[in-house]
Design a protein around this nucleic acid. Structure first.
Lengths: 136, 136
DNA sequence: ATGGATTGCTATAAACAACAACAATTGTTA
DNA sequence: TAACAATTGTTGTTGTTTATAGCAATCCAT
């Protein structure tokens, strides 16, 4: 079939993102974590007592949509909330959460390395800076 | 906030894809087309009498999900169906569809060009081949 | 001619994201 | 310090997208 779409960088960007996201999801499934869960765990691990609102801003997830996400992680015993003042609550990883986070990071780092290996050497080092420029 | 995520190519890939998709959606909105609509119109334009199943395979969209998509395009008077045999139907652009498709292509090409301009020159030519390797 | 594959479709469910609204609390500044 | 503005965590709702299973009709290959 004649298909001019893959020559559009924007189209290939979408397809590449879908393909890699699907594969990472498969690899995170044994941990019963989604990608967004892993992102949140990593960010909380790096920033103890971060608030739900701040997390949402960093990840471009609306406050309202953080609620079920955090509830799921809390129900799974991975995070806990500590009141910072009368209205904000700081998030932190539980012991189980720290363990899961470490496992997830290992999976992600392996996945990222394998993903980069698939990119022909001459282009490899240009990928991250090019992507970075598109959304930062 | 400490955020190691943007250093993961996979994460930046997802964020870049989201950011660019959101912007392209805005630009296509005046035509009342979504990105997937534009993709389908372009593919049909290049391949008259293609079937819904073949389209779905090319775009990685399941047969079942092509139904409402094509119905929408048909209701908008952009495509028409011609029976090829007792069960398959060939898709083609109507006159209105051809016009819309051309407008969409113009918007997309302008968008892609501007997107590439945002990528620093040394990395620019490497983006498409790198992305291509990730999903082809 | 029969059995397997394909086509188009229905129906359903899950995940994800967008929006508006709300009470409570915090901060800002007049 | 009193009043006003902004922020936080929620709820509820909606729309979009995608996945899954199933079905009748038709095509194709042996």
């Amino acid at each position: 079939m004649r298909d001019p779409l893959p020559d559009f960088p924007g189209y290939s960007l979408r397809r590449a993102a879908n393909a890699t996201a699907a594969e990472l999801s498969l690899r995170l499934a044994p941990l019963e974590l989604r990608q967004v869960d892993a992102s949140v765990l990593i960010l909380i691990g790096e920033n103890p007592d971060v608030t739900a609102s701040a997390l949402g801003r960093q990840l471009d997830i609306q406050r309202a949509n953080m609620v079920p996400l955090l509830k799921r992680l809390e129900d799974a015993g991975l995070i806990e909330r500590n009141p910072l003042d009368g209205k904000s609550q700081g998030l932190a990883l539980t012991a189980t959460g720290k363990d899961k986070c470490k496992q997830a990071q290992a999976i992600i780092e392996k996945f990222e390395a394998e993903m980069l290996e698939r990119v022909p050497e001459p282009h490899r080092q240009h990928l991250l800076p090019a992507l970075y420029a598109l959304w930062q």
